[in-house]
């Protein structure tokens, strides 16, 4: 299970873009906490503290204890809006969860044993089809990451979800097909370049 992160937040009273912009002008990040059939609460976060968590692996699969003016609320980050150019967080959505809430979470995939794959040793490329997998899981047992073992994989081989051992109680949201997580592809760059050079020589 992933660790629970405590994050300080302040309540703000007004909703809407004017209030959100005012919060940003004050040097904080506007956020909202909703769900669990309760009234939504408007928040503001400290950009430094939040940025530190945002850039850690598996941000969306970590539970947060939001400390709003002294009261703690357990929540999962649902969405982060980023500035298109600077990638600074503009707004954050949190959804309330309890220990037994069944939720959909994107859990990051971690690949291991690259050197034990003959395909990668021969110059193959690990083509990651899914960097994270959406799991249906109860909030108190969200896995930190999903480990994919690359041992013995040749060029042309692929890793499907059926080959992954998921933690107890976790199911992939895509249940109707055995979807691909990664493939070992032949190096495309070399053929690409020779083709381009051939084209240049022909001109």
């Amino acid at each position: 299970m992933s660790e629970i992160i405590v994050l300080e937040a302040e309540a703000r009273d007004r909703a809407g873009k004017g209030a959100a912009r005012a919060t940003r002008r004050a040097g904080r990040i506007p956020a909202v906490l909703y769900g669990d059939k309760k009234e939504p609460v408007m928040l503001s976060l400290d950009p430094k503290l939040f940025g530190r968590q945002l850039h850690k692996p598996g941000f969306f699969s970590h539970l947060f204890d939001l400390n709003i003016d002294g009261t703690k609320h357990r929540a999962l980050p649902r969405d982060v809006q980023l500035h298109p150019v600077t990638d600074e967080p503009l707004h954050v959505d949190f959804v309330r969860v309890t220990a037994h809430t069944k939720t959909h979470v994107n859990v990051p995939v971690h690949f291991e044993n690259h050197l034990a794959s003959p395909g990668l040793k021969r110059g193959g490329v690990l083509n990651v089809v899914r960097h994270d997998i959406e799991l249906s899981v109860s909030a108190d047992s969200i896995p930190e990451r999903i480990d994919v073992d690359l041992t013995g994989l040749e060029i042309g081989d692929s890793v499907h979800i059926s080959a992954i051992k998921l933690p107890a109680g976790a199911h992939p949201v895509i249940a109707d097909r055995d979807f691909t997580i990664a493939t070992i592809a032949a190096p495309t760059v070399k053929t690409d370049e020779t083709a381009a050079e051939g084209e240049a020589a022909a001109v």
Binding site: G123, V125, V189, E193
Partner: peptide, 9 residues
């Protein structure tokens, strides 16, 4: 492509 040589995509 020249810099990354044969690996990568």
């Amino acid at each position: 492509s020249r810099h990354i040589r044969r690996v990568g995509r």
